[in-house]
Design a protein around this nucleic acid. Structure first.
Lengths: 242, 242
DNA sequence: GGATATCCTTGACTTATGTCAATAATACAG
DNA sequence: CTGTATTATTGACATAAGTCAAGGATATCC
């Protein structure tokens, strides 16, 4: 709730953030002077678990870079069903499109856990961009990635049924991590349902069917992938029997 | 209808293109020298109706700016069902994300009608960008718009049922044009189904129900919106009765 | 202009997934 | 540890939308 700018000694703060910022893709390869400007215009903010960061339709005053924690960006149906668009983690941008386009936020954003972020005011950032257009190059890469993510999401939602989306998600997790046969879901099942565009009940049933069929084994948030081939088949439209 | 660059003498041609390019958002406010470079690296290409421009997974060698005609960008399910991601028209970019990111095309693109386009080779364009980073600013605006489009699409696909998506589409068309009560569908019903993430049969049934209930009137591709309030209610989750 | 291919509509049927409600399991606070 | 709140599972049921198949309407091509 309280989002304060921490009161640190000036020098300490600068040094610390400078090294942090070098690791943020958006600010790679920035010349020193521009980095200095950056440090002058950012603000640290903190959000507690479940706290709303911004809401759909509200005016965007700027954008965030997440330093710690995770944020879910989601839409709500009139009846309250939620669809998670993406989950934003450390070193990633939040709300940048709106800030750049000067349009209102297109979705809600809530902190999923205690979250620390850097906040950039739109006008300050745009001023920087005019001085240093190459920043936008890095931003482009980020947007391009997000576009590809959305492309896949649309494909999934309209061309695949829930088992297919779930299978794709598990294999995705599997690739991310070392591709061992055990993957750890880093979100609750309810949230996973929302991410896959379905509801907890449906997800629960499908997980049970997959277990019964020996495709995988569930214990809490730990999933053991037993038959990856079967998962791939499901992604490719193979029906999941009862 | 036909707006083409007729067969003019060389000098004429250059002049013509130069002015054409000034109208493309991507190249707004470019200084003269950069414009000259641009003209050196572009190629004119033409596609006949139904012709494939690129396919999902194929290496991207560059991107297009559509000058005339329309192109559908779509995904295919293993069973052949198609989901149109967007329809690209004159003055718009095609395949730019892939070109920028250096990744393969993430979807298929077919000309929906006779289409004329300018083609830019990746490496040439990237060289230009290095000289003139401000081009990327304009590109950002394009990507930001597309992201918002996809955001709405995901919301629709997962939170609304087909009648809601259809209603949203009609009201969107209505706003685009002068918002008279008559809208002209500029694509076939089959294609519209694919755009809405459904199949022609379902679309047909829903159109009939909407007619029966006096919400609208269909005659060919001309739709008369009789009860816009009802359409808005449907978007907001109101059920469409039989 | 007639033949052919394509698109559109409609009906009967199946199925995936959402809804509602009740219980079980887990996490959390005092 | 114990009670409470949240989260997950399960069943019975409703329904939106897909499948299959057939007939009708349009567009298109020689």
């Amino acid at each position: 709730m309280n989002s304060g700018i921490k009161l640190l000694k000036m020098n300490m703060k600068k040094t610390h953030q400078s090294s942090a910022m070098m690791n943020i893709p958006l600010f790679h390869n920035l010349p020193g002077p521009s980095l200095k400007i950056l440090q002058g215009i950012l603000m640290e903010k903190e959000f507690s678990k479940g706290e709303n960061i911004f809401s759909e339709g509200s005016e965007s005053t700027g954008f965030y870079i997440i330093m710690r924690g995770r944020v879910k960006v989601y839409k709500l149906s009139p009846e309250g069903k939620e669809q998670i668009l993406h989950i934003v983690g450390p070193r990633e941008l939040l709300g940048a499109v709106s800030a750049f386009a000067g349009s209102p936020y297109p979705a809600h954003a809530d902190a999923m856990e205690k979250t620390k972020a850097l906040f950039f005011l739109q006008k300050d950032f745009l001023a920087l961009v005019r001085k240093e257009p190459s920043v936008v190059m890095n931003m482009m890469a980020n947007l391009a990635m997000r576009l590809q993510h959305f492309t896949r999401m649309i494909e999934d939602l309209s061309l695949k049924e829930v088992p297919g989306r779930l299978a794709a998600y598990f294999l995705y997790l599997c690739e991310q991590k070392g591709c061992s046969d055990i993957v750890e879901m880093d979100i609750s099942k309810g949230q996973l349902a929302s991410l896959l565009g379905t509801i907890p009940e449906t997800l629960s049933r499908i997980l049970r069917r997959l277990s019964e069929q020996g495709v995988l084994e569930v214990s809490g948030r730990r999933i053991r992938l037993i038959n990856k081939k079967a998962l791939k088949d499901i992604i490719n439209g193979e029906k999941l029997r009862f």
